[in-house]
Design a protein around this nucleic acid. Structure first.
Lengths: 274, 274
DNA sequence: CGTGGCCTTGAAGAATCTCAAATAATGTGG
DNA sequence: CCACATTATTTGAGATTCTTCAAGGCCACG
C-alpha cells in the first residue's frame, strides 16, 4: 500500500531481481547440511537482512531452524504462548488473529512466503495473537531470545528485528486508516492491491493470483461480513475491473482498482457516476 | 486495554509507586545543568528503561535534548519528514495522524506525558504520520540514529527501542480489533477505559479527568463521527455510567463501563436488556 | 451420488452517517 | 470587562451503508 508498492501494481512491473534464481538440488542439499541454506532459499531477498555483513548473515542462517510444518487450520502458536521463536513463512500462508473475551475475532494480518511473524510477543514475552495456517504451511524459526536481547546474537540481528517491527507498525497504521475511513469497496480494492503488490515482490504475477483465504477471513480482516466482501467482488467483476472465479482473481483494470476501484465515488461534490 | 490495565481501572487502585516524588527546584536545576535530569523527571518511570544498567541510563539521559515546545495545533513533525529524533511527551498531548491522498485522515494515537512517539520513521527513515499538539506541549527528543543503528548508542538503547516498538505493535493490534469488531458505544467505552488506565499509570485519578482532545478527534480515532461520539457520551451519561461536562469526565460506574458499557448487549443469545 | 463447506444473491432491518439547527464555551477587540 | 465572532458540542430527523437472515448453487470429497 506504500507509494512504491502502488507504483508496482499500477504498471504491473516485475521488480528486477526481486527473487533469486532457483538453486539446483545439489546446491540445496549442500546448503542444508552446511547450515547455509538461507542464501540459496528463493525467498532470501525477503528474509535475509540486506545491510548485514557476511559473517553476521552466516550467524543468522545458522540460527534458523528449518521446516516446521503446520497443517491447514493448525496453529503455529496461540495467544498467550511463550514467545520463543519468530517465524518466516516458507510455503503456504498464515493468518494472525486477535481475540476478544466474548469470542469475537479480528484478523490482524495475512502472512505469505517470505513474511516474518511472531514479533508481537517481544513486549510481554507471550504472543498476543493466534497464528493459524490457511493452507498446509512450512515455516523457518528464528530463536527469539538472542534476537530480542542485547547479548549473544549481536547488534546486527537486533537492528534487523527493529526494522521488521517498525515495518509492522507502519503496516498496521495503514490498516487503521482502512478500517477507520474507507468504504467497503475501497477496503476490498485496497486489499487486492496490497496482495498484488506482495505477489509482485515475490516474483509472481500481480494481476493474476489465487487467494489463500476464504471470504470470511477477508471480511474479518477488513472489518466487513463475508457477504459484503462477496458483493464487492461481484460488483467489481460486473464493472469489468476483475475476473473472479471463486478464489482465483484476475485484475483486468488496475487503474480503476487503484482509483477507488469501481466505487465511482467523488467525495468533493457528491456526484455519483453509474 | 490489557488485562492488567483493566484491573487497575475496575478497582480504581492507584498503582503503588508509579510516579516518583517531585524533585525540589534546586535538585532540578542541578540535574538539568549536569545532564541527569531524567532521573529526577516525574515521568522517569514511564520513559527510562527499567532493565538498563546505570551507566547506560546515564548515556540515555545525556542524549536527551530537553524542552522543545509546540503550540497547540502545531506540528512536532509531519509525514515525510526525515526521522531524526524520537520524542517523549513531557507536558500536554499529541495526536499522530495518518493521511490519505484525498484528504481523509485517521488518528492512530493520542500521546500523553511519558509516551514515546516517532518510531514509525525507523523503517523508511521518514515519518509516516503527522504529529500535532492538542495543547501547548513540551517534548524531550532522543536522537534516532544511535537508537536505531547498531553502532554508538549501544545494544541497551537498541533493545529499549525494540521493546517500545513491540508495545506499539500490540497497541495497534488492539485498535484494529476495536475498529473492526466493536460497536460505537463499545468503542467509546474502551477509549475511556484506556484513557483511565493511562492516567492511573501517571498517578492521576482514573475516574475523573479532562479530555485533551475534541469530539471530532475522538470520533476520528474510533472510526466514528463526532455526532456519534457525542450521542454515546450522552447515553452513558443518562445511564448513570458517566458524568460528562464538556471535556471533563467522571466515571461513576466503572463496572458497567467495562462490561460493554451501557450498550446492554448480549451477543450470544441476542437478548437486549434496557 | 450424497454431504458439507464455501460462495453468491436477495430482502429486510439496524447502526451509523449526513444534514441541520440550537446551545454552550472560548477567544477577541474595543 | 463586555459584546461579538468563532468554535465546540448536543440533539433531532432522514438517508445510507452495511449487516442479518434466508435460500440456493457450486465444488470437492468420501
Amino acid at each position: 500500500m506504500s507509494a512504491t508498492q502502488q507504483q508496482t501494481v499500477v504498471e504491473f512491473r516485475r521488480p528486477a531481481g526481486a527473487i533469486a534464481p532457483a538453486a539446483t538440488p545439489q546446491q540445496r542439499w549442500e546448503a542444508r547440511t552446511q547450515g547455509a541454506a538461507c542464501a540459496l532459499c528463493h525467498l532470501h531477498t525477503l528474509c535475509l537482512p540486506e545491510g548485514m555483513a557476511a559473517p553476521e548473515r552466516a550467524d543468522f542462517t545458522r540460527m534458523i531452524a528449518r521446516h516446521r510444518k503446520i497443517a491447514a487450520g493448525g496453529a503455529l502458536f496461540r495467544a498467550g504462548d511463550t514467545c520463543e521463536h519468530f517465524y518466516f513463512v516458507k510455503t503456504g500462508a498464515i493468518k494472525t488473529v486477535m481475540l476478544m473475551d466474548d469470542g469475537r475475532e479480528q484478523i490482524t494480518g495475512f502472512h505469505l512466503p517470505g513474511d516474518m511473524l511472531g514479533m508481537d510477543g517481544i513486549d510481554a514475552g507471550a504472543h498476543t495473537t493466534d497464528a493459524i495456517a490457511l493452507d498446509d504451511t512450512r515455516v523457518c524459526a528464528l530463536p527469539a531470545a538472542p534476537a530480542a536481547r542485547t547479548q549473544a546474537g549481536g547488534a546486527a540481528l537486533q537492528a534487523y528485528v527493529q526494522r521488521k517491527l517498525a515495518r509492522e507498525v507502519v503496516r498496521e497504521q495503514r490498516l487503521l486508516l482502512l478500517l477507520g475511513r474507507m468504504t467497503a469497496e475501497e477496503r476490498v480494492a485496497a486489499f487486492l492491491r496490497d496482495l498484488a503488490g506482495r505477489y509482485a515482490e515475490r516474483g509472481q504475477s500481480p494481476n493474476e493470483f489465487t487467494l489463500p483465504m476464504a471470504r470470511e477471513d477477508i471480511g474479518n480482516y477488513l472489518g466487513l461480513t463475508l457477504e459484503t466482501v462477496s458483493r464487492c467482488f461481484s460488483r467489481l467483476k460486473h464493472a469489468g475491473v476483475l475476473d473472479v472465479d471463486n478464489r482465483h482473481i484476475r485484475i483486468r483494470d488496475a487503474q480503476r482498482l487503484l482509483s477507488g476501484a469501481g466505487s465511482y465515488r467523488q467525495t468533493s461534490n457528491g456526484v455519483v457516476t453509474h
